[in-house]
């Protein structure tokens, strides 16, 4: 494997890491907003959030990538493959993450809400100071899975011409520059290695999130 090939594959790894990071940054605020909308008092807000979630979960990230990449330019929005890639992956993941956050919010015991109400806390304060801090450790493991799914889905951007890890490896392997067995083994091992920091980060956050929590029975 010569230097040019190695360099291009490493560049691909960097692009994959960028796509995943940016997608997660797009997904996080969207997911929180949609999750809060899903538990809103207002029926219209709840309905809109439900439509958002169902639409995005009704088709795959790949189909959405193709739609955005090929249809938006026809409608007059020129968009680069890279931007289309991380935005679509982020928006897609936000629908799954929103459902996770919503589940965690609903898992917070009701008396907590009633107590906050009795104390005269506003809805915003109740949410940000009482509900979300307790929902946070509950949602983390499942959010970690969503992050891994983003990494896995990021390979799809190679199909809309983004030069990510998958595209670079496939390019050299299918043109016979590097051995296919070596290339695709490297590809699988590479993704496995990329998933390690995500898993670790998730565990670290989980540990940190339980720092100040004491539950009955343990510590």
């Amino acid at each position: 494997m010569n230097e040019v090939v190695l360099r291009s594959i490493l560049d691909g790894v960097v692009v994959t890491a960028e796509v995943v990071t940016l997608a997660i940054l797009v997904a996080a605020p969207l997911a929180l907003t949609v999750a809060l909308a899903r538990v809103s008092r207002f029926k219209l807000v709840r309905g809109a959030a439900l439509v958002y979630v169902e639409f995005l979960r009704g088709t795959s990230a790949l189909v959405q990538l193709f739609w955005v990449y090929f249809v938006l330019p026809e409608l007059g929005f020129a968009i680069s493959a890279f931007v289309a890639g991380f935005v679509v992956l982020g928006v897609n993941a936000s629908a799954y993450a929103a459902e996770v956050i919503r589940g965690a919010i609903l898992a917070v015991p009701r008396p907590q809400l009633e107590a906050a109400g009795v104390l005269g806390l506003s809805t915003t304060t109740t949410m940000s100071r009482v509900v979300l801090p307790q929902a946070w450790p509950v949602m983390l493991p499942a959010l970690g899975n969503v992050a891994i799914d983003v990494l896995k889905a990021s390979a799809l951007v190679s199909l809309i011409t983004v030069s990510d890890f998958t595209r670079e490896v496939t390019r050299w392997a299918t043109t016979g520059v590097i051995d296919v067995t070596l290339a695709f083994s490297l590809l699988l091992v590479g993704y496995l290695l990329l998933s390690v920091p995500i898993t670790w980060g998730g565990h670290l956050l989980e540990k940190r999130s339980r720092r100040h929590l004491s539950t009955f029975g343990e510590g």
Partner: peptide, 21 residues
């Protein structure tokens, strides 16, 4: 664990290009 942490697309390429070898 390995299959769950790698993209379906990468697995697909692996099987499509490597198995015939």
């Amino acid at each position: 664990l390995a299959i769950r942490n790698t993209p379906l697309l990468a697995q697909l390429f692996f099987m499509y290009y490597v198995l015939p070898r």
